[in-house]
Simulated scan of single mutants.
Amino acid sequence: MTCAILDDEPLALDLLADYCAQVPGLELKGQFDDALVGLAFLQDNPVDIVFLDVHMPRLTGLQLAQLLPTPGPRIIFTTAYDQYAVRSYDLNAADYLLKPIAFDRFVQAVQKVRQQLASAAPATLPAAPASPEAPVVAPDAMFVKNEHRLQRVAFDDILYIEGMKEYLMLYTTAGKVLTLQSFRRVEEVLPPDRFARIHKSYLVALSRIEHVERGKVQIAGRLLPIGDTYREPFFNLIKAYNLL
């Protein structure tokens, strides 16, 4: 399958391009930070999938989707705002990815389009010969919104994450990063075998735990509480992690 990416954030473009390179059978034909330039390319260069940011200057992703040729590519919208999900499905979008985008969620969206294209193909066409799939490399970092940029945060650098109402404070070996994000979205991105929610306000890196005592976890010299709701699954997880 062929694809193109339209996003006005350079880091988001780089992240999606990297994801595309890791998926066997997915060929990136172009990436654009200008909606009008991307539209001109798509009108002359048909692709199977367009990863389309909702918020772009001059022309939004929702407006651009209505200007694409018919029959056009499958649209996968990408945005940090979930309030546009209903509108995107009104435009027959194949999928809707919320930033920060987890690699497994990206692969799921691509597979959905792959299945749609396969079911829409004429039954008389011979099946393409199977080719050995290259191993998919798991991501080692995530991108989070920090002020007016997307900041890369390596999983290995994360000590713990603290919830602060609608914000999250990421404590890392390089310092603190404040981002407007929910625990739910971050938990979808983080490897579940390396991180654990221990409290409604705290999520910790298992490898950074110094010790556990009296219902608290110490990381980087700070004691963090273990909530009653999270106590049993947390202790089951660290037993599996061979910390006990």
Rank of each mutant, 00 (worst) to 15 (best):
E232S: 11
E187M: 15
T78P: 04
T229N: 13
L52T: 07
L190M: 10
A130L: 14
G30Y: 11
A80K: 01
L117V: 09
P135S: 13
K216C: 11
D157C: 02
T179W: 02
T172P: 01
K29D: 03
T173W: 00
G72Q: 08
G227H: 07
Y160L: 05
A128H: 04
Y84H: 15
Q181P: 00
Q181N: 15
A134H: 10
D156R: 13
M1F: 02
E9Q: 12
A154I: 00
D140Q: 12
L16F: 13
L244A: 11
Q22I: 00
D18F: 03
L39N: 04
A80M: 06
V54I: 15
K145S: 12
K112G: 05
L98S: 09
Y202M: 02
R208G: 01
P100A: 13
R58C: 09
C3M: 04
T70L: 10
V212N: 07
A138H: 13
V144Q: 07
N236Y: 05
A196C: 10
C3Y: 02
D157E: 15
A109M: 12
I5M: 05
K99H: 05
L91P: 07
Q31C: 11
P46K: 10
R185D: 12
L224G: 12
F103R: 08
G72P: 11
A80F: 01
K29V: 03
R184F: 07
E147C: 00
D7S: 03
V177K: 03
P24Y: 12
P192I: 06
V204N: 03
L67T: 04
Y19V: 07
T173C: 06
S131F: 12
E213Y: 09
K145V: 02
R87H: 09
K239F: 02
R231W: 06
D157S: 15
G221P: 10
I158R: 05
D156E: 14
K216G: 12
G215D: 03
P100Q: 10
H199Y: 07
A80P: 00
F235N: 10
G215N: 07
N92A: 14
G61D: 02
R114N: 10
D140M: 07
R194M: 13
V212F: 05
K165M: 07
L62N: 04
A220W: 08
G175L: 05
F77V: 09
Q218I: 10
T79L: 12
V137F: 00
M1L: 10
R74G: 00
F234Y: 10
H211R: 15
I76G: 01
I5H: 03
N236Q: 15
P10S: 06
I101H: 08
P135H: 11
R222C: 04
I5E: 01
M164T: 11
L237Q: 15
Y19G: 06
A118I: 01
G25Y: 06
M1E: 04
L170P: 00
F41L: 11
L91I: 08
K165R: 14
E187N: 11
A17L: 03
Q108E: 14
T229V: 15
E162F: 01
K29G: 07
T172R: 02
V86K: 14
P10M: 04
G72D: 10
A21G: 13
V54T: 07
V217L: 08
L13V: 14
S207M: 01
F183S: 15
V23Y: 08
A196S: 14
F183W: 03
S207A: 15
D157V: 04
A17E: 14
T179V: 09
I219K: 02
T60L: 05
Y81N: 12
N146I: 02
I5D: 02
Q116K: 08
I209K: 05
D14W: 00
